Amino acid sequence: MAAGAVAAPLLAKGRRVCKEGCPGCRLDQINKTNTGVPYLNFFYVWVVCLCAALPIQSLFPYLYFMIRDLKVAKQEEDIGFYAGFVGAAYFLGRTTSAVPWGMFADKYGRKPCIMISILSVIVFNTLFGLSTTYWMAIITRGLLGLLCGILGPIKAYASEVCRKEHQALGISLVTSSRSIALIIGPAIGGFLARPAKKYPNLFSEESIFGRFPYFLPCLVISALAAAAGVACIWLPVLPSIPPPPPQISM
């Protein structure tokens, strides 16, 4: 090197080196080209999160009557005791599977986790409405919570699908959709449970809604979840985080 010459830095200031196949670099390139607010992606995230959260509180308006009709309580004072286990089964499943679902989303991507969660709502929420025994109600609610691991991954997805300046908006939409679901869910459960008794002109006692008086609210929520599952088709696929390379000890 000639005397007085200044060596050029290996990495120019402000310049980022992208490695081929790097998921972080690919994500940065996607967000770099999309400079505006991704309203459509945010709408899909909002709808998916809303429908996934609807079953959380929807059962509580009719849970007392459901436990009474299942005839598991020997006396009326015990209905609240048995209802508590049904209500807690969902949250027990969520508590158990929260961390594994986060690891799954990091390894295989957010979108597969979201779609599996929506599918679990469609299947197990419908089966809960068709419960004929107390243990069937507990198992279906527990499996619903166990397989609906959308809470953590959907927040990560909402922050990754946009630029940094829009991440607060994306996460706030997730929070608002869950709050709205906690309002709409109990309303659906309260209005549509036991329809043969409330609306005898529309539903007969011999119909499926008369034989399964708590099936209609679950069916409506599952139908909304199915619509959200269709919306998942247009969710952009974000790169997953690959595992670190194995370290070779000398």
Score class of each variant (00 low, 15 high):
3 A>Q: 05
5 A>T: 10
6 V>Q: 12
9 P>H: 02
13 K>V: 09
15 R>P: 02
18 C>G: 07
20 E>S: 13
22 C>Q: 09
28 D>A: 12
29 Q>V: 10
29 Q>L: 14
30 I>M: 13
35 T>A: 09
37 V>I: 12
42 F>K: 11
44 Y>C: 11
44 Y>S: 09
46 W>I: 01
46 W>C: 05
53 A>G: 10
56 I>M: 07
58 S>G: 04
60 F>G: 00
64 Y>W: 10
68 R>M: 03
75 Q>K: 14
78 D>W: 03
78 D>F: 01
79 I>N: 04
81 F>P: 05
82 Y>D: 05
85 F>Q: 11
89 A>P: 06
89 A>C: 10
95 T>D: 08
98 A>C: 09
99 V>E: 08
101 W>K: 02
106 D>A: 14
108 Y>L: 11
117 S>P: 09
117 S>Y: 06
119 L>K: 03
121 V>D: 05
123 V>F: 14
125 N>S: 07
125 N>Q: 12
128 F>N: 00
129 G>T: 03
130 L>Q: 10
133 T>A: 10
135 W>F: 15
138 I>C: 09
138 I>Q: 02
141 R>Y: 06
146 L>F: 15
148 C>V: 11
151 L>Y: 12
157 Y>R: 01
165 E>Y: 10
170 G>I: 01
179 S>R: 03
185 G>S: 03
191 F>Y: 12
191 F>S: 06
193 A>V: 01
196 A>S: 15
196 A>E: 12
201 N>G: 15
203 F>C: 09
208 I>G: 04
210 G>A: 09
216 L>E: 00
217 P>C: 00
219 L>K: 03
227 A>D: 03
229 G>R: 02
235 L>G: 04
239 P>F: 05
239 P>G: 03
243 P>D: 13
247 Q>P: 02
249 S>R: 14
250 M>D: 15
